[in-house]
């Protein structure tokens, strides 16, 4: 056991230790009124989803009734059947491959962006060099460009490098505007970590990269996972690039597939609902898995009422 690894271990155990410290004081649940507020919040946020669920099993003609019935007379499971068993060429059947495409594009983009942004953020936060502020703004400015402005030249580039209508192509495009965001967010979170930590680890003999990976990143976990979560959502949500750059089930993503459920000629709200519900599930699962990291440093009942 080298001294430096001990230092890293200490970094990990510190929050945990602090947490156990605090626990004595914050064991109790929040007061009842706060639970009531939480119930109201849950209802407000979930009500539209409840209706999506109901609408997805209500026949199109029942959805138009006035007064609206809040429960379908008979269950119409055709949309779900279409999505799960429909031919891949139909809009509903194409949704399956869209889910896979979206997941791959999001995972690829987030991995690439976070990997390069962590290094960059460390440099901006911890190294002294000329033009740091400008560097960050320079990166961030690409995140500010409306996609519409650059979509045509980008299209040409993708054709030239053979990545049009291709998931890797989308990953590269998305990474170009998600990396600045991750880099900037991580810089902020690194900045919030006191430099005494680095100093202590340096004294222990750890190199810069070791400090970054074993000390700073674990401490910045909440920020890191917030950034990952947000980056995932940006990928999941992106519409215009995907609309223009993808055209077959090989790479069409969820927003594009869902957009095809509705058009000026026909919108089946039930199908849109079923697709929307399915689309919302993966990010929520990912988020719930990650949430314990996001809130790792948070003492139970952190802010007392």
């Amino acid at each position: 056991m080298t001294p430096s690894s001990g230092g890293a271990g200490s970094a990990k155990s510190a929050p945990a230790k602090a947490m156990s410290h605090r626990r004595g004081m914050n064991d109790r649940y929040a007061p009842v009124w706060m639970h009531l507020v939480a119930v109201v919040v849950i209802v407000v946020f979930l009500a539209p989803f409840a209706w999506l669920a109901i609408a997805s099993v209500t026949s199109p003609s029942d959805l138009l009734r006035r007064p609206l019935r809040w429960w379908p007379q008979h269950l119409d499971l055709s949309r779900w059947a279409d999505i799960f068993t429909g031919d891949a060429n139909t809009p509903a059947g194409g949704f399956r491959s869209a889910m896979v495409n979206s997941a791959i594009v999001a995972a690829g983009t987030v991995t690439l962006s976070v990997a390069v942004a962590v290094l960059g953020a460390y440099a901006v936060s911890r190294l002294k060099f000329r033009g740091r502020g400008i560097t960050v703004l320079g990166f961030l400015s690409t995140y500010m460009i409306p996609p519409i402005a650059i979509v045509i030249p980008l299209y040409l580039i993708l054709v030239r490098i053979g990545l049009l209508d291709n998931r890797l192509g989308l990953i590269l495009v998305y990474s170009s505007f998600i990396t600045p965001f991750v880099l900037w967010t991580l810089t902020n979170f690194f900045d919030a970590l006191p430099r005494e930590i680095d100093e202590a680890a340096t004294i222990d003999g750890a190199g810069r990269m070791r400090i970054l990976w074993q000390v700073l990143l674990p401490l910045a976990k909440p920020g890191l996972f917030s950034a990952i979560l947000f980056a995932t959502m940006l990928c999941w949500d992106e519409f215009l690039y995907a609309l223009i750059f993808t055209s077959t089930p090989a790479s069409k993503t969820i927003p594009v597939a869902v957009a095809e459920f509705s058009g000026k000629f026909a919108t089946d709200f039930g199908l849109l609902s079923a697709g929307g519900l399915l689309a919302a599930i993966p990010p929520v699962v990912v988020a719930l898995v990650f949430q314990r990291y996001v809130t790792a440093g948070l003492a139970a009942g952190g802010v007392k009422g």
Binding site: V41, W236, P255, V258, G276, A280, P282, P283, L288
Partner: peptide, 11 residues
């Protein structure tokens, strides 16, 4: 609270 965010804007 996460659900609305997970729903693509188009949807």
């Amino acid at each position: 609270i996460l659900m609305p965010w997970a729903l693509p804007t188009v949807v």
